[in-house]
Structures are given as structure tokens and as C-alpha cells.
Simulated assay, not measured.
Amino acid sequence: MTLALAPDRCKEQIRAFLTSNFYISDVKTLEDDTSLLDQGIIDSTGVLEVVGFIETTFGIVVDDSEILPENLDSIRGMAHYIASKVHAAADT
């Protein structure tokens, strides 16, 4: 498990996953706050793929109750969510 997680590195990993696994017409327009659902980049099935990526890559468990737009709808939201989960795991 990654105990120290640099936010920018986390965002880079998320962006790389999204651009290699989902259709994004112009990668340059994918900003940290872009809504992945509103832009049609991910759908409900895509959310499950993102959850699998987060769990595998960052060694955390995403609880069903945490599958929320504020946690998974943008690169910034995912990075914040991942950092908080990794930090909480490091405290236990």
C-alpha cells in the first residue's frame, strides 16, 4: 500500500487510466474538475471499472456507500478521495 501519496502523481495515474480505458475526444480538454459523467466519458459500468482501478492501484477498498459523484466524477474528486482513504488507512 502507498502510505505517502503525492496528489499530482495520483492525478497523473488517474488521467493515464482514463485516457487509456475510455474514449476521450480531446485529451487536452480533460481537466481535473471535468465531470466524467456529464461529459459522457464514463457511465455506470465505467464507474465500476474506475472502482476496480482505484482498489488495485492504490490498495484501498471502495465501500458501496462511497460510490458517489463527489468521489468518482472528476480527477480531482478521485485524487481527494484516494488521498483521504490512504491517509485513514495509514492512521490505523
Rank of each mutant, 00 (worst) to 15 (best):
M1A: 11
M1E: 05
L3H: 08
A4C: 14
A4S: 15
A4Q: 15
D8H: 06
D8V: 11
R9N: 11
R9W: 07
K11G: 07
E12T: 12
E12C: 10
Q13I: 02
I14E: 00
R15N: 07
R15V: 04
A16H: 10
L18V: 05
T19E: 15
T19D: 15
N21R: 09
F22T: 07
Y23R: 15
Y23V: 15
Y23E: 15
I24C: 10
I24E: 11
S25H: 11
V27P: 08
K28D: 15
L30H: 02
L30F: 04
E31V: 03
D32F: 01
D32W: 00
D32V: 02
D33A: 00
T34L: 02
S35A: 03
S35H: 01
L37D: 01
L37V: 02
D38N: 10
G40M: 09
G40W: 09
I41S: 09
I42C: 08
D43A: 01
T45F: 11
G46T: 01
G46F: 05
G46R: 03
G46I: 04
G46L: 03
E49L: 11
V50A: 07
V50R: 03
V50K: 04
V50I: 14
G52T: 11
E55R: 09
E55W: 06
E55N: 10
E55F: 06
F58I: 10
V61Y: 12
V61G: 12
V62E: 04
V62F: 01
D63C: 08
D63I: 02
D63Q: 10
D64I: 08
S65V: 08
E66Q: 13
L68M: 15
P69Q: 15
N71A: 13
N71G: 12
L72C: 11
L72W: 06
S74K: 04
S74M: 07
S74V: 04
I75R: 08
R76I: 05
M78V: 04
H80G: 11
Y81D: 05
Y81S: 07
Y81W: 09
I82Y: 00
I82T: 01
I82L: 00
H87C: 09
A88T: 02
A90K: 09
T92Q: 14
T92R: 13
